[in-house]
Amino acid sequence: MNRLGVGVGWRAEIDLTVEGLAVDFVEVLAENVPTDPLPESLRVLRGRGLPVVAHAVSLSLGGTDPVDPKRVAHLAAVADAVSAPLVSEHVAFTGAGGLDSGHLLPVPRTREALDVLVANVRAVRQDLPAPLALENIAALLDWPDSDLTEGQFLAELVDRTDCDLLIDVANLYANSVNLATDAARFLDEIPLERIAYVHVAGGVHHDGVYHDTHAHAVTPEVLDVLDQLCARVTPPGVLLERDDDYPADTELAGELSAIREIVERHV
């Protein structure tokens, strides 16, 4: 697996901040990035040789509707434009029955849902210029009839598709709070050697529920899950996601330092 190091999500709102942070790679949200022309900031970062991963949120790989070829084509175009070493998308569906939720929804952890995911992943991957990593999501609700744990489900999915994993430790923490997912068992069940990189993000507790907002500071609990993961394997990359309520540059730098310290503690 290619070493990526410690990175941050590139967003147009904080492009100058990202250019000034000490990071080894960045990730772009493909849906928000035009390719003609590519934002100048991304050309600057590419010019410095920084790897740029292309991340998608809207392919709905877990949906029973056919994946929209225009969305796949745009993701491929972004990946091409930034020479992405890696492309990533979520294990989720975003809509059904003619309606679009605009967000990531969990799929039931059943064989039937696995078959749908495997078929969609195989079809999509043919049109992508880089290896695809699949990400665990944060869910507020769970299906009533799941046969597999989340770890087993992901393990079988990447085994059948030969994809990599993007493990989001904030999503794992969220599910441990909201759905009673056993984070340690999850980490025991997934194939650690398939982890391409890791996501870290902030969130907030509200009325007994953890909301993965990407708009608050990274919590010690999320960093503890990162620590548990790094105790098992050194991930090739760890990326901080911040999508709203952008803090001072020094605060982002501090969160990146904390992440780097945890990764290096276990090397």
Binding site: A96, G97, L99, L105, P108, T110, E112, V116
Partner: peptide, 13 residues
Amino acid sequence: MSDLAGRQAALVR
């Protein structure tokens, strides 16, 4: 597969 489609649609509704 059609069963899953119907169940996803019902949840989304």
